[in-house]
Design a protein around this nucleic acid. Structure first.
Lengths: 195, 195
DNA sequence: GTCTATATAAAGATAGAC
DNA sequence: GTCTATCTTTATATAGAC
């Protein structure tokens, strides 16, 4: 093992994951992470000598890995129908904390070193875009969708679904998943009436 | 005048607007705002006695007012065609700093008092959704769009366009405006081929 | 209106005892 | 591995001179 794969270290990573996913990089303090992991904040440096920034990058990698696995599994379990696949992707994304890639790009990453920024950018693309691009490519080959720029489409879909996290379900009067399904239907069929 | 409408106060509000729009609430310090306004940070309390939180709310109200006016003007100047109207809305949104409503809802607002939260939520809706809902309603009456839930559609459109702020134009190889136009076309016509 | 000086709190990080 | 204690910095906020 290349790192101290202790049980306490795992607790630290889980605690940091919950807090970073919820509030981003800046607002989370090492004392909060330590408290949630049952440790004094100074003990974190034993498990993650690189400090807060290194901890954030490692935790984001874990989040990306889970998203990539979760999205791929959801898409695989949805069967061959594109609409059901996109529903499944939405269900997965809405089951997780918001990724808020705009915040990540414009706020969190500003505080990190360039190499860390590059690492996170690549991870986000592989986790959130690639699985969707694959099913879109298959649908494109079947002639079900016309558009060729699948990166653009997958990004637009993810952005639209994630933006539902800004909507209060109480105010909207329906669940985010219901809203996501209608928006996906619009993306598939278009706002303009079909003849 | 109910407040000290001095020239220095205006400089403070402009400086705060730029910084809050760029980084959100937490990461911005009063010292940064003061420096940009040419004032010691302690002098800010003369112009905004309520401190950082009050300053943020007042500044966000100004941002909302500008968005509402800018969006309405852009839509009006676009003429009667829905596609051109949506293009104009995208051009406006992409000309301004990201609003990042997910961050606002899940991070910034957590640090504010409930009354301030309510005020900001209402302002965001009136600024970003209402102008779009109006043109969508007109198009709906002309029979150009089938979907009835116009709040959902306008929210999805805004979220999709704003999510382009997470995309590097250098990586994508095209401008955000070009991407926005293609996504709007997809929303209008659908991914599925029209016969 | 603006400043200096300061109070108070909390952040990231390190040293060293156990 | 974990702690206490501390260093250093920086944040919001206030008091009071000018």
């Amino acid at each position: 093992m290349e790192r101290s794969q202790s049980e306490a270290r795992e607790r630290v990573l889980v605690a940091a994951e919950q807090l970073f996913a919820q509030k981003g990089y800046g607002p989370v303090t090492l004392r909060q992470i330590g408290a949630r992991a049952g440790l004094n904040h100074s003990s974190l440096y034993h498990h993650v000598p690189g400090g807060k920034a290194d901890l954030f990058v490692e935790v984001m990698e874990r989040i990306y890995a889970r998203h990539r696995a979760g999205l791929t599994a959801a898409l695989g379990a949805a069967g061959p129908d594109l609409r059901r696949q996109l529903y499944a992707a939405a269900r997965w994304l809405l089951s997780q904390p918001p990724m808020d890639l705009v915040r990540l790009e414009h706020i969190d990453m500003v505080e990190l070193a360039p190499a860390q920024v590059q690492q996170l950018s690549n991870g986000a693309y592989a986790a959130l875009q690639l699985p969707l691009v694959e099913v879109l490519a298959a649908a494109h080959e079947r002639g079900e969708i016309a558009e060729e720029d699948l990166d653009l489409i997958s990004g637009g879909l993810v952005g639209m679904i994630e933006s539902l996290f800004a909507v209060s379900e109480a105010v909207a009067g329906k669940s985010r998943m219901m809203m996501a399904e209608r928006l996906i239907d619009v993306m598939l069929n278009g706002l303009r009436p079909r003849l």
